[in-house]
Amino acid sequence: MSRCRKWTASKRPAGCAREAERGLLRMPVIAMTANVMTEDRTACLEAGMDDFIAKPFRAEVMTATLLKYA
């Protein structure tokens, strides 16, 4: 089972809440998993992840994904 299925938006890591309290920009969370089925991607996004990269990944896919949040 994908780890992102165990993580819910209400259970975001404590560091995420502290960012907002300190007036910092929110750190995006990008799931990286070998689970590539559509339902795996959907589960990660519904759990509060900002994006999804399937493994094995291509460097240009990772670069493009990271640049979306730069």
Rank of each mutant, 00 (worst) to 15 (best):
Met1Arg: 12
Met1Trp: 08
Ser2Phe: 06
Arg3Ile: 13
Arg3Val: 15
Cys4His: 11
Cys4Gly: 13
Lys6Ser: 10
Lys6Glu: 05
Lys6Asp: 11
Lys6Thr: 05
Trp7Tyr: 13
Trp7Met: 14
Trp7Asn: 08
Thr8Val: 05
Thr8Ile: 03
Thr8Gln: 10
Ala9His: 04
Ser10Pro: 00
Ser10Gly: 05
Ser10Ala: 13
Ser10Met: 09
Ser10Thr: 12
Lys11Thr: 12
Gly15Val: 04
Gly15Asp: 05
Gly15Ser: 10
Cys16Trp: 08
Cys16Arg: 11
Cys16His: 06
Ala17Cys: 02
Arg18Cys: 10
Glu19Gly: 04
Ala20Ser: 08
Ala20Trp: 05
Ala20Lys: 13
Gly23Pro: 02
Gly23Thr: 02
Leu24Val: 00
Leu24Cys: 05
Arg26Met: 04
Pro28Leu: 03
Pro28Arg: 00
Ile30Asn: 03
Ile30Trp: 02
Ala31Trp: 00
Ala31Glu: 01
Thr33Val: 00
Thr33Asn: 00
Thr33Met: 01
Thr33Lys: 00
Ala34Val: 02
Ala34Phe: 03
Asn35Val: 00
Asn35Cys: 02
Val36Lys: 07
Thr38Gln: 13
Thr38Cys: 06
Glu39Gln: 11
Glu39Ile: 01
Glu39Ala: 04
Arg41Trp: 02
Thr42His: 11
Thr42Arg: 09
Cys44Arg: 05
Cys44Val: 07
Leu45Gly: 09
Glu46His: 14
Glu46Ala: 14
Met49Arg: 05
Asp50Cys: 08
Asp50Tyr: 03
Asp50His: 11
Asp51Arg: 07
Asp51Met: 11
Phe52Gln: 11
Ile53Tyr: 05
Lys55Ile: 06
Pro56Asp: 12
Phe57Asn: 12
Arg58Thr: 15
Arg58Gln: 15
Arg58Ala: 15
Ala59Thr: 15
Val61Asp: 15
Met62Phe: 09
Ala64Cys: 07
Thr65Arg: 10
Leu66Gly: 07
Leu66Met: 15
Leu66Tyr: 07
Leu67Ser: 12
Lys68Val: 04
Lys68Phe: 02
Lys68Asp: 07
Lys68Arg: 15
Ala70Ile: 09
Ala70Trp: 04
Ala70Tyr: 09
Ala70Val: 11
